[in-house]
C-alpha cells in the first residue's frame, strides 16, 4: 500500500492566482473591492450611485460577474466607465483567473479603483479570493434581518457590510437593529453602512470611505 501525504488546499490554484492579482493591483496602485450579495440586493445600483458621486474625484473601472447576459455592463458603460463583463455560464462565483483575464483588458485605463461585482450568490463567492483589498457584503432589507445568521460565511469573511434599500424598511418586517446585531454576532469587526439608491441616503458616507481608502492606498 502506497500512501502519499500531500496536505494541499483544494483551492490552492485559485489562491495562487489571487496572490498574483494582488501583486498586479499593487503595482498598478489600484484599490480593489469585491462586492458580494444575493441577486437583487442592489449591487449594480450602488455601483452606479458610487460612479455618479465619484466622477472627477476617483477613476473607476468595473468588472461585472453574472451567470448570463451583459446587462450590468451595459448599465455601467452608459456612465462612460471602463467595464468588462464576465459571463460565467452557470458557475455560481467568480474565480481569480477570470478576474485576471478581465483586468488585463482594462489595466491601462489608469484607474485608481476597481469594483468587482461578483455573481449574485450569498454562499459560494465567499470561498474564492480574487486578490481584492476588501470584501464588501451587501444585504438589502427586503431579504430579511435573519440572513447574516443563515448565510454566515460571507459576513465572517467581509470587513464591511452595506445594508441597502433602507427606504423600504416601513414596508417590510425587517428590523434594522436586529439585522445589525445579527451581522455583528457573526463578525463583531464589521463596519456597517446604510444606504438607499432611491433616496441616495448613506451613499455619501460610503463614497467618503471609498475615497479615503483609495487615497491612502
Amino acid at each position: 500500500m502506497s500512501i502519499i501525504t500531500i496536505e494541499r488546499k483544494v483551492l490552492e490554484k485559485n489562491d495562487q492566482v489571487a496572490e498574483q492579482n494582488r501583486e498586479i493591483f499593487r503595482n498598478k496602485k489600484i484599490f480593489v473591492i469585491n462586492m458580494l450579495s444575493s441577486p437583487g440586493s442592489g449591487k449594480t445600483s450602488i455601483i452606479e450611485k458610487t460612479i455618479e458621486m465619484l466622477t472627477g474625484k476617483v477613476k473607476i473601472a468595473v468588472i461585472e460577474g453574472d451567470v448570463q447576459t451583459d446587462l450590468d455592463a451595459q448599465r455601467i458603460s452608459k456612465l462612460n466607465i471602463p467595464v468588462i463583463q464576465i459571463v460565467t455560464n452557470g458557475a455560481c462565483h467568480l474565480e481569480a483567473n477570470l478576474v485576471r483575464d478581465a483586468f488585463d483588458k482594462i489595466q491601462n485605463t489608469g484607474s485608481d479603483l476597481l469594483i468587482i461585482e461578483n455573481v449574485g450568490n450569498l454562499v459560494c463567492p465567499a470561498a474564492y479570493d480574487l486578490g481584492e483589498n476588501e470584501k464588501v457584503v451587501i444585504l438589502s432589507v427586503t431579504e430579511g434581518d435573519d440572513k447574516p445568521l443563515k448565510y454566515p460565511a460571507m459576513f465572517r469573511k467581509s470587513d464591511y457590510l452595506i445594508i441597502n434599500k433602507i427606504d423600504l424598511i416601513p414596508y417590510t418586517n425587517c428590523r434594522l437593529d436586529t439585522l445589525k446585531s445579527n451581522a455583528l454576532k457573526i463578525n463583531p469587526k464589521l463596519h456597517i453602512f446604510e444606504t438607499s439608491c432611491t433616496t441616495s441616503e448613506g451613499i455619501e458616507e460610503w463614497c467618503c470611505w471609498l475615497i479615503n481608502k483609495v487615497s491612502s492606498h
Binding site: 500500500m1 500512501i3 502519499i4 501525504t5 496536505e7 488546499k9 483544494v10
Partner: peptide, 12 residues
C-alpha cells in the same frame, strides 16, 4: 473552513 487534500493512496 478548510478544504484540503490530506493524502493519496495508490493501488498496489
Amino acid at each position: 473552513d478548510e478544504m484540503q487534500i490530506v493524502e493519496i493512496e495508490l493501488y498496489d
